[in-house]
């Protein structure tokens, strides 16, 4: 970890500025999901700046992917914090969020201005269908990395049914899932059964075997 820039006791304007600038640049590339962006982060942070090594990058990916929130913002917070403490984390998160905030606001204002136009409205309906497709792709990737035995399949199917047919708030499912998971592992261990909490990795699998946390 290269913390040399923090050691002289003065406020690290230069470092904080650099962190902000790097993530400002990464922000617009966070299009289309976590992994596209992780590649950009790796290029900028590991190769160009030399701020982190590959092992730390691996730690970061697994933490950023499992904490709540988008993997892009989480990665930014992690890297920023490691490099420049709380201020570094703030600079990184603001840097990565600001461009998307501006872009989505501009898109929305542009859409509102031309909303009466039937063609614009039709185009947005087309986009709506493609967003459904992007969500389905994320769901498919998530299924591949999280559903691999009877318990996980039943849990997922039951949850979809609950969501479709009851008014139960999803926070109960999010709280209940880990309890079921821990109970299942505990029972299996008591009965001396094999305990597996992640699917087996296939040799031919190129993608990292972690939940596809699309941003």
């Amino acid at each position: 970890m290269k913390l040399a820039m923090r050691t002289n006791g003065t406020f690290p304007f230069k470092l904080i500025g650099q962190i902000f600038a790097v993530f400002l640049k990464i922000g617009p590339s966070t299009f289309g999901g976590g992994y596209a962006m992780l590649a950009t982060i790796e290029r900028e942070i590991v190769h160009k700046k030399g701020w982190m090594d590959d092992e730390e990058m691996g730690d970061m990916v697994s933490i950023a992917g499992s904490a709540p929130g988008g993997v892009a913002v989480n990665s930014a917070a992690f890297i920023g914090y490691r490099l420049g403490g709380v201020l570094g984390a703030l600079a990184a998160v603001i840097g990565i969020t600001l461009p998307t905030l501006a872009i989505v606001l501009m898109l929305s204002l542009t859409y509102s201005a031309f909303k009466e136009n039937a063609k614009v409205e039709a185009a947005l309906q087309g986009v709506h269908a493609s967003v459904v497709a992007l969500i389905l792709v994320a769901a498919w990737k998530m299924m591949r990395s999280s559903l691999f035995d009877s318990i996980t399949w039943i849990l997922a199917a039951a949850s979809v049914a609950v969501l479709l047919f009851t008014g139960l708030h999803s926070v109960w499912l999010i709280l209940g899932g880990p309890i079921v998971g821990m109970a299942a592992v505990w029972i299996r261990r008591l009965r001396n059964m094999e305990v597996r909490t992640e699917p087996e990795r296939r040799e031919d699998d190129q993608e990292p075997m972690m939940p596809e946390y699309y941003i």
Binding site: M142, T152, S159, L163, L173, P178, P211
Partner: peptide, 21 residues
Amino acid sequence: SAFYGLRPIVTALIVYAAINF
């Protein structure tokens, strides 16, 4: 093991998001 139980829930939420949206 907590994530073992949480991931299927997240999967379900994403599937539901596609249907609902």
